[in-house]
Amino acid sequence: MKKDSKNGKALFVRVWQAKYLYLCILPIMAWILIFQYGPMYGLLMAFKDYKAKLGILRSPWAGLENFKLIFKVPIAREAIINTLRISVGRLIFVFPIGIVIAILLTEMRGAKLKKICQTVLTFPHFLSWVVVACILKNFLSTEGVVNSLLGGLGMDSVNFLGSENFFRPLLYITENWKEMGWSAIIYIAAIAGIDPTLYEAAEIDGASRLRRIWHITLVGIRPTIAIMFILAVGNVMNAGFDQIFNMRNGLVEDAARILDTYVYDITFARVPDYGFSTAVGLFKSVVNLLLLLIANKMTFFITGDKMLS
């Protein structure tokens, strides 16, 4: 990055020489400025007592009132706690599964079988949560396959979808169902990049297969795991809107309330308060950003390599 230092030429000469490169980035930068940075002007609403009639600029200032409200309204506070709870749950119950699947796929035998399995495991990633939620709801409903199986074993049927106790585990299970094959790919690629002579040497030294997985495979993919972990931590405030929005129902309202669904609900409530909705959204984004920056610093210490250049 650093070697493009001044080579003596005047700035305008270098700009002129790069005219086609500016042309290349013009469309994307125009899109970024208009449609990504443009709406950020609307963030002013978070600091205003927004009245649709007055518009953003002429609505009266409210200072930090909207943000204080986030911590005063019990439902908003619960939404924050629930968001974190679900996200931490994902880090524990979803994040490692991709690594496990990658190792299993690498260790399994039968090239053809492996290919079929990988195809099946990856496929649901390409379906939307609208589709996946519908398939799994049908499968897990009180008349569904799982419950008829339980019935066959002489057990009572369980209302998986309508129980607050099951809701969070269900989120982790269904996310794994949809994404485990996909999240494994990046680790499979990393494992494929490990020097094979390391394994041969370890084998000659008499290391068992488990020891080879532990000391070579896992060590070899550590940087990849670290980077994926940063991305996951940076996502902690997004507890998975798509999934929850399509999985939730009236019976699990409280367990399913995360910041994003809360913003949606108050935005489309009968009497929307755009100022407050915007404040909740902004609060979420800012915390997200801070977490990501911290996580990025941390990985830098761990691997000596930053993801965000």
Partner: peptide, 22 residues
């Protein structure tokens, strides 16, 4: 500068209401 401007939008955006209003 341009790259940073672009990168930033990966982690931060206006959010539901401002985007909808725009």
């Amino acid at each position: 500068l341009f790259f940073r401007l672009m990168l930033f939008t990966m982690f931060f955006n206006g959010g539901l209401v401002p985007i909808y209003l725009q």
